[in-house]
Computed example of a mutant assay.
Amino acid sequence: MLAFNFTPFPTIETHRLVLRRITTEDVNEIFELRSNPETMKFIPRPLVKNTEDALEHIAMIEEKIESNVGINWGITLKENDKLLGIIGYYRMQPENHRAEIGYMLLPEFHGKGIIPEAVKRLIQYGFEDLKLHSIEAFIDPENFASEAVLLKCGFVKEAHFKESELYEGKFLDKVIYSLLNK
């Protein structure tokens, strides 16, 4: 069976970006990302309410890396180490050589091609370094920006699950996109 090992932590670069380890020094940016109703609009998780919640989120990310069950990177520009967003692999299934990719970006950086650039590089990392056979993404069907990113990166729509998740008293739809390592 495939096994993941994120030690040493893989810092990854693209043309414009550095994907690096998230640290407690990123607490303000994590708070900004996870407490913003606009940023969290399509992510059915509670909003972060304070810096302690943001530190708990960073600790959860770190624990997943240390136990090799998931990995997140902070997205930064090469010329500025300030965290702009997060990208990572979640719900990793080593037995199926499959992982879920997810990402979020501070609103002032939307529309600049940052997420497609980061996703394309993580696809390469997933297939070449992690030896994944497939990468999936779960999105809200109303998240047209994320859908555009996935299609641009070669993902195909696999399924649309109607009212498949209950969150805060409301049933939500979920769409799955995937990419196979051909």
Results as ranks from 00 to 15, higher is better:
103 Y>H: 12
78 K>C: 05
164 S>W: 09
112 K>M: 14
140 D>I: 05
126 G>M: 06
81 D>Y: 02
52 E>P: 02
46 P>G: 05
16 R>K: 14
10 P>K: 06
168 E>H: 02
101 I>Q: 02
178 S>I: 09
50 N>L: 05
27 V>S: 07
69 V>A: 06
79 E>D: 12
149 V>F: 04
30 I>P: 01
51 T>E: 13
161 F>T: 00
61 I>Q: 14
51 T>C: 05
163 E>A: 11
81 D>C: 00
73 W>Q: 00
15 H>A: 12
165 E>A: 06
155 F>Q: 04
170 K>Y: 01
93 Q>W: 13
41 K>S: 11
47 L>C: 07
66 E>Y: 08
4 F>S: 07
66 E>F: 09
94 P>A: 05
92 M>I: 11
140 D>E: 08
56 E>D: 13
95 E>P: 05
23 T>I: 01
36 N>L: 01
122 L>H: 04
171 F>Y: 15
107 P>H: 08
142 E>H: 10
86 I>S: 01
80 N>T: 00
174 K>P: 04
175 V>S: 10
93 Q>D: 14
103 Y>I: 09
138 F>A: 09
17 L>H: 07
3 A>S: 15
164 S>K: 07
32 E>P: 01
159 A>T: 04
35 S>N: 09
139 I>G: 01
53 D>Y: 08
20 R>I: 10
90 Y>S: 12
134 S>F: 02
114 I>N: 05
68 N>D: 12
106 L>Y: 09
168 E>A: 01
136 E>F: 15
1 M>H: 10
93 Q>A: 12
141 P>G: 05
